[in-house]
């Protein structure tokens, strides 16, 4: 025969047993709900905030790329010619020669120095001599800044004699490797600033080096293979 232990307790305690047990259960459940529920929701809110942030960044990036897709390709050639990827000494010499022809001046004693590495930016010195009238020489020196690749005149010595005006000039040209990778997909992209647009307009006005694409010669049939 089973003994009802509850019946053994004093009646004053019996009336409180069930409510107290239920109160304890309610307390435990409430505690668990607060601890688990709130931590889960907190973590979820953090995830949502991060997702919204990424979404905004992606949305802004997409909008910027959509806006610049028409203009950026037109700037690429200009900027790549201004600071090329590889040593631009030869293309600069070609530019200097073209400028000399335009100014009707003699360009001679051209020498290329060795490449000097910098922090991501290499430079090469080109030294050359000029002969012409004083006006031509000064005008030539002043026009070097309008050539691409961009260069800086390091020094120039102008001498006038009975034969004419001669100048010995050192010009420094720069080059740098192109960026190798794109930024992360969720990394923000900023639009071109007004200052950058002004620089681009200035670079667009530079005289770009003219390159000729040589067509590959088709293989021909040679009548005499030893000729």
């Amino acid at each position: 025969m089973a003994i009802d232990t509850k019946k053994m307790l004093p009646p004053a305690i019996q009336v409180f047993i069930v409510p107290i047990i239920l109160l304890i259960i309610l307390g435990i459940l409430t505690g668990l709900a607060i601890r688990i529920g709130f931590s889960r929701i907190g973590a979820q809110r953090d995830d949502i905030a991060a997702a919204r942030r990424d979404e905004n960044t992606l949305s802004q990036k997409e909008s910027v790329l959509r806006d610049v897709q028409g203009t950026v390709p037109t700037y690429v050639n200009t900027v790549a010619a201004s600071i090329p990827e590889k040593n631009p000494a030869l293309s600069m010499i070609s530019q200097l020669r073209t400028l000399a022809l335009t100014n009707g001046i003699i360009l001679e004693n051209i020498k290329i120095g060795s490449a000097v590495p910098g922090e991501g930016l290499f430079n090469v010195d080109i030294t050359f001599g000029l002969e012409g009238t004083p006006v031509q020489v000064v005008s030539y020196l002043n026009s070097i800044k309008n050539l691409a690749p961009i260069s800086t005149v390091e020094k120039a010595k102008v001498n006038q004699s009975a034969l004419g005006t001669r100048a010995d000039v050192t010009v420094r040209v720069y080059y740098s490797a192109f960026p190798q990778k794109l930024p992360s997909l969720t990394e923000a992209v900023r639009e071109l600033t007004d200052e950058e647009r002004t620089t681009l307009n200035r670079l667009s006005a530079l005289s770009l080096p003219a390159f000729t694409d040589l067509e590959a010669q088709p293989a021909g049939v040679r009548e005499n293979p030893f000729d």
């Binding site: 910027v64 610049v68 950026v72 690429v76 900027v79 790549a80 600071i83 991501g120 192109f178 930024p183």
Partner: peptide, 11 residues
């Protein structure tokens, strides 16, 4: 765009 910005920084 990345190339343009990189070159502009170098310029």
């Amino acid at each position: 765009l990345v190339l343009v910005k990189d070159r502009l920084a170098k310029v």
